[in-house]
Design a protein around this nucleic acid. Structure first.
Lengths: 361, 361
DNA sequence: TTGAAAGCGTTACCAG
DNA sequence: CTGGTAACGCTTTCAA
């Protein structure tokens, strides 16, 4: 009769442990929580029992009672068939995963092509109790998302600069300053006819970089009305098409600033097809600086955006908030370096994979 | 007194809805589950109440009682500071995310540098009830992981070919055949002194591709003892170093097969430094074919591994298993094409970004 | 220092 | 067709 022919193969629960150790479930729970007022003797007993039955506390039950999932959502604001193809997303996810893991948080990812879907997923996951907060990887210009999340009490941190003033937690590089510095660098090299290829204008990052470009050009005495700018999607093809448009309309450009390295690769293709040599005819400079930039032909000079760090910092920020110790300074600006390679005619070798001769701004 | 000054700002629960609609919680639950035997009238009442209080069922509570989290784990067998940097990981994750989302599953990702950690994370997440099953992205040669998971009853699907015979669910391309075809192609171009640069030998994929290489070389009458092979880590630097070693030891190589495109980019760097022109002195062919391969200099001929599809199919397989309708055929082999570009001297243009003139095997 | 009991928010069985 | 009630596995008062 003391045979244990009860459950078939239920996973072992806290009660099994309690029974085996001859204590109550509460006591087991306390041992697990390292409650100091448990006697060393019983603690030992319980621990042995836990070992014996291979007990693992059910995280779902815990989440239910604690009202916390220990899970962070990571929102990729792109169609699932593009997400992660972008080095920016992949790298910032890498940073987020590293930090989440370090602090004992789980990471749940979801993709959302449209703002509406991103809103829906973030809200639903939170309301269902599946995530405690969310990392957003994109800030759009006219976007009710952030306001909605705030209103609903969803904790979140943004990678990028939110358009409004009201958002508290975000991490970014200073895109206006960085784009301005990059443009200034091209000007300093002697270029005057500089074109800008940007991503979609619905993104704050696009507008910020455009603004930096404009500022530098104005400072150089260029009329803001005459600036050569074209936009495209954040893809190789997008960069290709935007560049084609731009160089057709402005055939005398001698330099191109491109706000994304994937797009820049497409720009190189367009330039090659048009018979323009880089950097002899047209100098090219881009943003991000993934492996793609250093292995392109020619290797691309780039503003090195700390993508990994952006993801990591945003996650740290969110975790601090979730842990109830929100940092006084809600946002962080990370510095971006400039990496000079052959595409602006300045690199010593032609394969810049390790040629990170950087120049602080 | 009919003022609702009850909870402070508790999220609304099924009971709130029940109270408002004047029915029991069970009834609300049934409406949610679209139980056919609920009367249209009450269903309507309940639905209105749900709208009114903005009710969202708590997913954690559901998971607890249903013993299913609707969540799939995605294991990245790499240190968090490398994960997703690999196009293979990024692309297969993309595929997994798309399918998971389509079937209403959530995706939880975790990184694990060592087999021990991968085992620990997979097992713990499952035992805690946080995931219903797991996608593994790497198959190692001597690996108890898969056996352990089976023993513990963790449903899983593998991207890649598991070493043992016992594993049921996996998706792969035929690496032996694909490597053999690639080598055969180089042979057909007239090369005889062909070197192989591979990833770490602990991975099944490495051994399979080595095997294919060997087979083709043997068929061409080469002594298997004299084959030029070097291995390195799956990084640009790994490819660089392995290639350096290889071309020093075998200075007369006229072609290189490299089992990864990130590594191939490093190989190009090593060749350039050694003063070998590609393809004039050394032809280069690689695997995977991400954007990196087509934008390298020169553009790399590659065996195009369907990375996205591998992730997608593995996820479909796992979801089928979780849904209780395990497919009769447990594993799937996807075909891989060959994309010929300038690095083997065959491309018409030098920028192969869209030059996917493929050749079926 | 420990135990009993009351939840956490659902679902599902058993009556009616 | 609908309502009570007992789980699901854990944490956390409240008592002792």
């Amino acid at each position: 009769m003391p045979r244990e022919t009860k459950g078939k193969n239920r996973r072992t629960t806290i009660k099994d442990v309690a029974a085996l150790a001859g204590v109550s479930a509460s006591t087991v729970s306390r041992v697990l929580a390292m409650d100091p007022r448990i006697s060393p003797a019983t603690a030992e007993k319980v621990r042995k029992a836990i070992q014996e039955v291979h007990y693992h506390p059910n995280g779902i039950a815990r989440s239910l009672v604690r009202k916390a999932s220990l899970t962070i959502g990571f929102s990729v604001a792109q169609p699932p068939d593009q997400a992660f193809a972008s080095p920016f997303v992949a790298e910032s996810l890498r940073g987020a995963a590293a930090i989440a893991q370090r602090y004992g948080y789980y990471l749940m990812i979801f993709t959302a092509p449209t703002p509406a879907e991103e809103r829906h997923h973030s809200l639903t996951l939170f309301r269902e109790g599946r995530i405690d907060g969310v990392i957003l990887t994109t800030a759009r210009v006219h976007d009710t998302l952030l306001g909605d999340l705030q209103r609903e009490g969803v904790p979140f941190a943004v990678i990028g600069r939110p358009a409004g003033r009201q958002v508290t937690y975000w991490v970014n590089n200073d895109n206006v300053a960085d784009a301005r510095a990059a443009t200034a660098h091209l000007l300093q090299l002697g270029h005057r006819r500089i074109g800008l290829v940007t991503g979609p204008r619905q993104f704050v990052v696009t507008l910020d970089r455009m603004r930096g470009f404009r500022l530098a050009m104005q400072e150089a005495g260029q009329s803001p009305r005459l600036l050569a700018i074209a936009d495209g999607s954040f893809t190789e093809q997008g960069g290709y098409e935007a560049t084609q448009t731009l160089i057709r309309r402005y055939p005398d450009l001698t330099a191109l600033l491109i706000t994304d390295d994937v797009m820049a690769v497409g720009a190189l293709r367009a330039l090659a097809e048009a018979g323009r040599r880089v950097p002899a005819d047209v100098a090219v400079m881009c943003f991000n600086d993934s492996l793609l930039a250093s292995t392109a032909h020619p290797p691309l000079s780039a503003v090195r955006i700390p993508m990994y760090e952006l993801g990591a910092k945003a996650t740290e920020l969110l975790i601090a908030v979730l842990a109830g110790r929100p940092p006084e300074s809600g946002h962080i600006l990370l510095p971006a370096d400039m990496v000079l390679r052959a595409s602006t005619g300045e690199a010593s070798d032609t394969n810049g994979a390790t040629n990170h001769a950087t120049e602080k701004e």
